[in-house]
């Protein structure tokens, strides 16, 4: 789960080393059903003062859910360490971002955090309702039942179309719902001849998909703002998170996602040559 550091007007647990202890949401399970999505966060908190505020009804665990595809942003508050929230499925689509916080429910004048960084020792703060007291990180999921980030079909984030140029190199369009590879008319014809054939899949992955995917992974890992709200970006991000590849080298990541495309490409060539040999001797 990712955590970004920020500058808060008071010490916040989970923000760099402001406070001792921890606030984690693990495990975070979600369940995609036809009509509703269930979120099941388990909040693990260790900080004496913040625990006390929650016990006293002055703060709550907050799960903030946001979907950039459907103008959806909502929050769910609880004081239980294990809880479940339902979101109607129709309200979200594609990537759903989830953030976890502890927020003040009411104004807390003279808030004295416990387990402070020495810089804050003995200091008190006037906290207002809504103020973030702890950050538990961010995650995301794809709100689509048949999308599995651990076994993602390439077609879920990339497509190949024909361009208007007769010959020449392939072009890439990152600004669509999917990454679009644009082939020249000549290459498109050759592609159409082999598309869908199992023997050709390895070659197509190695020669077309692999180089494009390396660059796309690079864009996601760099958090390229130009593409951050594209569907393909969210899907690729979910794949990286799901497979634990977020911080790995794009070259290695692309090979893992495509399951060793170069080896499969060689296998394709080998199989094609064998087939041709058999034909020659027939």
């Amino acid at each position: 789960m990712r955590v970004n550091s920020k500058s808060y007007p008071h010490p916040v647990l989970g923000n760099e080393d402001d406070l001792g202890g921890f606030f984690r949401v693990a495990p975070f399970h979600y369940e995609l059903k036809k009509d509703e999505i269930t979120l099941n966060p388990i909040f693990n908190l260790k900080n004496a003062k913040i625990e006390e505020l929650i016990r006293d009804g002055k703060a709550s665990f907050v799960t903030e859910v946001e979907c950039q595809s459907t103008f959806f942003r909502s929050s769910y508050s609880t004081r239980k360490t294990i809880d479940r929230f339902m979101i109607p499925s129709k309200l979200v689509r594609e990537r759903v971002a989830v953030g976890f916080y502890v927020c003040a429910d009411k104004d807390i004048p003279g808030y004295q955090p416990s387990e402070c960084h020495p810089d804050y020792e003995g200091a008190s703060f006037d906290v207002e309702a809504g103020d973030v007291l702890a950050v538990g990180g961010y995650t995301s999921f794809i709100a689509e039942k048949n999308f599995d980030p651990l076994r993602p079909p390439v077609s879920s984030f990339m497509s190949i179309v024909v361009g208007s140029h007769h010959e020449g190199p392939m072009q890439i369009d990152y600004e669509g719902e999917k990454i679009t590879v644009i082939l020249s008319k000549t290459d498109w014809q050759s592609y159409m001849d082999v598309r869908g054939q199992k023997l050709a899949e390895g070659m197509l992955h190695a020669s077309i998909v692999f180089p494009v995917l390396i660059d796309a992974v690079h864009q996601v890992q760099n958090g390229n703002g130009d593409y951050a709200d594209m569907s393909w970006f969210g899907r690729l991000e979910a794949i990286l998170d799901g497979k634990g590849l977020r911080d790995k080298d794009p070259f290695d990541v692309a090979q893992k996602i495509l399951d060793n495309p170069v080896s499969r490409g060689f296998q394709s060539i080998g199989s094609l040559l064998e087939t041709n040999d058999e034909r020659e001797y027939e």
């Binding site: 920020k6 808060y8 007007p9 709550s60 907050v62 903030e64 942003r73 909502s74 929050s75 508050s77 916080y101 927020c103 429910d105 207002e128 309702a129 809504g130 103020d131 973030v132």
Partner: peptide, 13 residues
């Protein structure tokens, strides 16, 4: 919003 989740506030607040 960066430091205060105003989405959690009641209507009056």
């Amino acid at each position: 919003y960066g430091t205060k989740k105003i989405i959690t506030l009641d209507r009056v607040s």
